[in-house]
């Protein structure tokens, strides 16, 4: 028998698995469990893609029509037109505004937690953030519906106009008709994505070597100068990843948005206006349409668009991180 020292036995177990090891049952079982995720993704992509193209394949709708602005899916009330532009732009509009509100707040909060907060403050704020993550989206939607929407309606009912003597009205935002609006959706979303952006940016700031801070402070900079000129640039890939993750979550959120957005499939023009997103339209109409009819096929096309957005964001995050590795 070959003499086995502890060292080379260990080494052989690690580096060159023998036949028995390769064939053993537990290994196969755990392998299947892990690989099942590839199976799920493949099936999901396949099924949604197949359903998503039915609008063009089976119903013969020209692909270009999807990019038009008119949504007239009901064949019983005139000629149909499956323009998805209001939904796509609506999703982009709500997501962008939510990011605009949430990013400064979340990155600030991440900076607070990693650079400013004493231990006791961090010990309170971090669990609070975890509770935020746990609050279900229908509850956020319900809060939006019962508090935010009436508040917006009661407070900003009148048109907001800036008039100049000669030029007349240079700026006009119509007041809220009902409170259900682009802004309401964006506000609800901005709170929902706050923990995501905060925790990923926090990790990015924590990962910065301490020497960068001490070096900068030793040169006589203030803490804010260190944050602005050293820490934020150093953590930028991580912060960008955080923003992309927040964006993905905002674009994919369905119920909370549907509850406050107002569901009007029009092109977004004013933040006080009710608009519609891809997710909200799917949520609202999927149950009211019949499987196989063009209207429902258009909803499947919307979900394909959503799927493309989310896969693209995964690829984007990977690209950002690859660049970080290279640096």
């Amino acid at each position: 028998m070959v003499q086995l020292t502890t060292a080379n036995r260990l080494a052989s177990l690690r580096t060159a698995p023998g036949l028995r090891e390769r064939l053993d049952l537990p290994r196969r079982v755990v392998f299947l469990a892990a690989v099942s995720m590839i199976g799920i993704v493949t099936l999901l992509l396949g099924f949604i893609a197949w359903q998503g193209i039915q609008l063009f394949v089976k119903d013969g709708v020209p692909v270009g029509q999807v990019f038009s602005a008119t949504w007239q899916p009901d064949a019983t009330s005139g000629p149909t037109n499956y323009g998805l532009l209001p939904f796509i732009l609506g999703t982009i509009a709500v997501t962008a505004l939510a990011l605009l509100i949430s990013t400064p707040l979340s990155v600030g909060l991440a900076l607070f937690l990693s650079e400013v907060a004493p231990r006791w403050a961090r010990a309170i704020v971090q669990p609070a953030l975890e509770i935020f993550v746990g609050i279900p989206s229908v509850v956020w939607g319900w809060l939006g519906l019962t508090i935010l929407v009436p508040f917006l309606h009661d407070t900003f009912r009148h048109d907001f106009v800036i008039s100049l003597p000669v030029l007349g009205d240079v700026f006009r935002v119509p007041g809220f008709l009902t409170g259900f609006s682009w802004l309401a959706g964006a506000l609800v979303l901005s709170i929902m994505i706050l923990p995501t952006i905060t925790s990923v940016s926090f990790d990015a700031f924590r990962a910065i070597p301490q020497e960068l801070r001490t070096g900068s402070l030793a040169l006589g900079t203030t803490r804010w100068q260190t944050i602005r000129h050293i820490l934020i640039p150093a953590a930028l890939p991580g912060v960008l990843t955080a923003i992309v993750l927040g964006m993905t979550r905002a674009a994919g959120e369905a119920l909370a948005v549907q509850m406050v957005i107002g569901s009007q499939p029009v092109l977004p023009r004013a933040v006080t206006q009710p608009i519609e997103t891809l997710t909200a339209a799917i949520t609202l109409d999927m149950g009211n349409t019949v499987f196989g009819e063009p209207w429902q096929d258009a909803l499947w096309t919307m979900s394909l668009v959503l799927l493309i957005i989310s896969v693209a964001s995964v690829v984007l995050v990977r690209l950002i991180n690859k660049r970080r590795m290279a640096l």
Partner: peptide, 10 residues
């Protein structure tokens, strides 16, 4: 990562 980022409604 892909499944985590797919919207729950999808």
């Amino acid at each position: 990562e892909a499944i985590s980022s797919v919207p729950s409604i999808v």
